[in-house]
Amino acid sequence: MLPAAHRLTDADSFRVAVRSGRRSGSTTVVVHLLTGPGDDTPAQVGFVVSKAVGIAVVRNRVKRRLRHLTREHLAQLGGLPGPVVLVVRALPAAAHASYEELGRDLGRCLARVTA
């Protein structure tokens, strides 16, 4: 679970990050990264898993996997620098992807948007 300060819950922040941020996609996920102004707000992460991914059980499983994988990848990257907003959007192929495949796709997308 992500700490409360690092959870993205505001709909406007999701919208701005998706429309204005850097984007990288793969077969299972799309990652949007928006760098904010240089204030003291912590990095925030949000997840979008639509009904196109599957029934509620499948969507929740995908969301749990992505949450755990994102936490691992951010720890390996040394966290996100400064006030950034990261949105991870699951695609329908994520429902049938293995944990390892989701991890590879997420890592590759994060490396592209943070480079």
Rank of each mutant, 00 (worst) to 15 (best):
G82T: 01
R23P: 07
L66H: 01
T28V: 11
V57Q: 07
A93D: 14
Q76N: 14
T41L: 14
D10M: 05
L74H: 05
A111F: 07
T114R: 03
F47T: 00
R108C: 11
A4V: 13
S20Y: 11
R108W: 10
A97R: 03
R23T: 07
L80Q: 04
V49M: 00
L34G: 02
Y99T: 15
S20C: 15
L33W: 01
D40L: 00
M1N: 14
R89C: 07
D40P: 00
H68L: 13
V87C: 05
V29M: 03
Q76M: 14
Y99L: 15
R23H: 09
S98T: 13
H96Y: 06
S20F: 11
L34T: 01
H73R: 13
L34Y: 02
V30M: 03
V113A: 07
G46H: 05
L2F: 15
T28E: 11
A90V: 06
G36P: 00
C109T: 09
P42Q: 09
E101L: 14
V85K: 14
A111K: 15
S98W: 07
V113F: 03
L74F: 06
A4C: 12
H6C: 13
S24F: 02
H32F: 12
K51A: 12
L80P: 01
A43M: 02
A17W: 04
A11F: 05
A56M: 10
P83T: 12
T9K: 13
A94P: 01
G78L: 04
R112K: 13
G103V: 04
D12L: 12
C109Y: 03
